[in-house]
Design a protein around this nucleic acid. Structure first.
Length: 793
RNA sequence: GCCGAAGUGGCGGAAUGGUAGACGCGUGCGACUCAAAAUCGCAUAUCGCAAGGUGUGAGGGUUCGAGUCCCUCCUUCGGCACCA
């Protein structure tokens, strides 16, 4: 008789044993085995594990354990992305140091993570706040600086005019106000530390082709980078200046009826403009314009004509007016646009408002604006040509350059915050920036800082930082006072895991050759563009500087879904629908919680799953039955049980490989349903425990030990299905008449068509129908279907 | 508006172009019990007494055969959003 399933009696015990025996540590690379690097996004140590963490780390753990048992050397590291605003806010609120707060959270969270019973490679852990981590973050930044990949540029930032500080996009609320002060956020041009991600724009798109990622993630990145192929050409102004414009539709050049410059366009201040005051006022208003208005694409277009300035259409020689309007973006393309109101919705709207001529130059419809295919018209000698034919001719005629433009901007990484990696730059007395040399790294975050927000960068108030700079570099030298965006920290953590104790370099080429690239990266959909793109850039930049072996960090990427509350809403304290995983674990055990999350639905779908109390009870019920399975052991099991076992092995193995944990679990349920009735041998019982082990590591370990085993079940090999048991003697197939299902037929599994016909002739079920049928054709797909085509009498 | 994903029972979801609804939840009936819970057994897409129909968002198409492939449309979700 079996013991009751008391998860609380053994889950903690086994977690302790695994930790003591370090059975999940990977140690050095073992070249006799294939490697598998499984990565999950390292968490922010908020101090409390929620269901999302379980979903993010617990379900991939199934895959990890399966691969490990299948003979791979699996690296499944865990660490902490521990810089960031929440620590600063918590510290301000509780009047404690962000470092202490963060470190105590990490310690607590490690304990919680252990309670999940995951097979983490704890010997490879790291955290972004460790000095031997951020030292290298800083060093790589200085290398980028030396190679012009990090630079001081000008970026448009979100400016909070009440707090007088730069705020992040995420802190701008949907209505365009600041999350912090409630002020209406404005755009401001400020000098910023930037990373030259745009240098890699083409590679970041083109190299996606080599990756085994879902289509939608690749498309998301492509769209984010936003490559447009087109042409750049110049218009000559009445002042003699030339204005470059970028267009994807140079074929519509004859339809240009005006030119538009962005308010930020550098040429404007140099021009002699009759209505100078009006233009200046407009530009000032546009610059101060609230984020609120800019967000609203449906708002009416505004602009001012530059009186006294005209431009000449390079192909028609026509003289056209020039406008300044904020619907043209200064930082995209050349910051100037040739307006073709007949074939562009925005230009059309603007032209209607300012009563400008609209000349249709592509035929196809009378409905304007029109952007579909057609022939050129009103285009001089080019009339009648298709868009494709006309494009190269016009390019040649006006001497345009075929070019590409990107939506992607350089990455602005400076933050006026305390709790981050100090940007390792010092300025000499003339204001020239110099990288802090490696011997002085880590360039430590000073502690003598009041980080209460005032609008000034907190590090500017540090006496220690100022004195340190002067002591090391000389009198009059000053430190950079900004810290780095935390996305920088997480752009290379997977490289540190594999060589986390190296003092010489952030990650040796040797270790990279051994472990990189990441084979499977499980993560959240919210990181599709930002983090995944930034870290791809970082990898490419390192590769270019010959500091990284590989050009791409992640071979395979999966985005998981989102677990909702029982009411179908996103879990939130205010809705009171938060499921506390600790409570659930206490109630039903870690194995049940993990298996329930895996059973809810396919893991690699980016969708939502409401938490179902009945569903988790069902999983617990299943594990109770597994616990009692020992009572069904018999000396000689029937062949059906052996067949079912091997079918389950084959199915589970295949499903695990494809991360389809839900159907793998269902296969195991089918097996248990069968052997509870038919009985199973002791050998089969042991085999079953090994295939269940990745899903229920604690229970299977306990049952394994009960059988007298002294070594862990997790060191066993994953069984292989025996082909001879996968084939049944007979097979039941469907019989269709004219494509409609009309009955069934049980045949020997290797039956040929003649045999199938012979069985059909004897079928009582189908007799009546067949008598009324003149058969013209029979389609027989062995093991699948018999379709009889004919005419009914 | 553009890009992407998805629409299957009361619910979560299964289904290499080949018997739609596996598995689980829920529900109903039964067994056990003084009773309830737990557990076990049976049933459970839908219309129909039945024979037999009808069914995977809608409508077309390809095919011997379509949830699956193609076209048009609708709805929901996610991302981007004046990017020339």
């Amino acid at each position: 008789m079996h013991k009751r399933y008391q998860h609380q009696d053994f889950e903690g015990k086994w977690q302790q044993v695994w930790a003591d025996q370090k059975i999940y540590d990977v140690g050095e690379r073992d070249e006799t085995k294939e490697k598998e690097y499984v990565l999950v996004e390292w968490p922010y140590p908020s101090g409390n594990l929620h269901v999302g963490h379980w979903y993010a780390f617990g379900v991939p753990d199934i895959y990890v354990r399966f691969k490990r048992m299948s003979g791979k050397q699996v690296l499944y590291p865990m660490g902490f992305d521990a810089f960031g605003l929440p620590a600063e806010n918590a510290a301000i609120k509780r009047n404690i140091n962000p470092k202490d707060w963060t470190e105590s959270n990490i310690a607590y969270m490690k304990q919680q993570l252990l309670s999940m019973g995951n097979a983490f490679s704890w010997d490879k852990t790291t955290a972004s706040i460790d000095e031997d981590y951020y030292r290298w973050t800083q060093w790589m930044f200085t290398e980028f600086f030396k190679h012009d990949l990090a630079f001081r540029g000008v970026a448009t930032v979100n400016w909070d005019p009440i707090d007088n500080t730069v705020i992040a996009n995420e802190q701008v609320l949907a209505d365009g106000t600041s999350e912090r002060s409630g002020a209406v956020v404005i755009k401001k041009e400020l000098p910023q530390w930037m990373l030259k991600i745009t240098n890699f724009a083409n590679e970041l798109i083109d190299d996606l082709d080599s990756l085994d990622w879902p289509h939608f993630i690749k498309e998301g990145q492509r769209q984010w980078i936003g490559r447009s192929k087109g042409a750049e050409l110049s218009f000559t102004l009445s002042s003699g200046d030339r204005v470059a414009v970028f267009t994807t539709r140079i074929d519509t050049l004859f339809g240009v009826t005006y030119l538009v410059l962005a308010p930020e366009h550098p040429l404007i201040p140099t021009l002699t403009i009759i209505n100078h005051d009006e233009v200046t006022t407009y530009i000032a208003t546009a610059a101060q314009k609230a984020e609120q208005d800019r967000l609203d694409a449906t708002k009416e277009k505004t602009g001012v004509r530059l009186e006294g300035v005209t431009a000449t259409n390079p192909i028609s020689g026509e003289v056209i007016p020039v406008f300044v309007a904020d619907y043209v973006i200064g930082s995209y393309g050349t910051g100037a646009v040739m307006a073709v109101p007949a074939h562009d919705a925005r230009d059309y709207e603007f032209a209607r408002k300012f009563e400008l001529p609209i000349i249709q130059v592509i035929s196809g419809t009378d409905e304007l604006p029109y952007s579909g295919p057609g022939q050129l018209t009103n285009s001089g000698s080019l009339n009648g040509l298709s868009i494709e034919e006309a494009t190269p001719r016009i390019i040649e005629k006006v001497g345009a350059n075929v070019t590409e433009t990107f939506r992607l901007r350089d990455w602005s990484i400076g933050r006026q915050r305390y709790w981050g990696v100090p940007i390792p730059i010092v300025y000499d007395p003339s204001g020239q920036a110099h990288p802090v040399p490696l011997e002085h790294l880590p360039w430590r975050l000073p502690t003598d800082v009041d980080f209460t927000p005032t609008g000034e960068a907190p590090l500017a108030k540090s006496v220690e930082l100022k004195e340190r700079t002067e002591r090391i570099f000389g009198a009059g030298w000053t430190p950079e006072v900004e810290t780095m965006d935390t996305f920088v920290d997480s752009s290379w953590y997977f490289l540190r895991y594999i060589d986390n104790k190296n003092d010489e370099i952030f990650s040796s080429l040797e270790k990279q050759r051994q472990w990189m690239p990441v084979d499977t990266y499980f993560g959240g959909a919210e990181h599709t563009t930002m983090h995944v793109l930034y870290s791809r850039f970082w990898q490419k930049a390192l590769h270019k500087l010959e500091l990284a072996v590989h050009n791409e960090p992640y071979l395979r990427r999966f985005n998981r879904g989102l677990v909702l509350g029982t009411d179908g809403n996103k879990m939130s304290k205010s809705k009171g629908n938060v499921i506390d995983p600790d409570e659930q674990v206490k109630l039903v055990g870690a194995d049940t919680v993990k298996m329930y999350l895996a059973f809810m639905g396919p893991y690699t779908e980016t969708t939502t799953y409401p938490w179902d109390m009945g569903g988790i009870a069902g999983i617990r019920r299943f594990l109770e039955r597994v616990n009692g399975l020992v009572d069904h052991i018999i000396d000689t099991e029937p062949r059906s049980s052996t067949e079912q076992l091997h079918r389950a092995i084959a199915k589970v193995c295949n499903d695990f490989n494809h991360c389809k944990f839900n159907t793998a679990i269902s296969a195991l349920m089918i097996y248990v349903n069968h052997v509870e009735k038919a009985g199973l041998s002791k050998a089969s019982y042991e085999t079953f425990l090994t295939i269940l082990a990745p899903l229920a590591p604690h229970l299977t370990e306990e049952l394994w030990a009960t059988l007298g085993h002294t070594a862990s079940i997790h060191l066993e090999s994953f069984p292989e299905a025996d082909e001879t048991y996968l084939k049944a003697d007979t097979v039941t197939i469907g019989v269709q008449i004219n494509g409609k299902l009309r009955g069934q037929l049980t045949l020997p599994s290797e039956a040929d068509e003649a045999t199938a016909r012979a069985h059909l002739a004897e079928s009582e079920e189908l007799k009546g129908r067949l008598e009324r049928l003149t058969i013209t054709k029979i389609i027989y797909v062995p093991g699948k279907i018999l379709n009889i085509i004919g005419t009914e009498i």
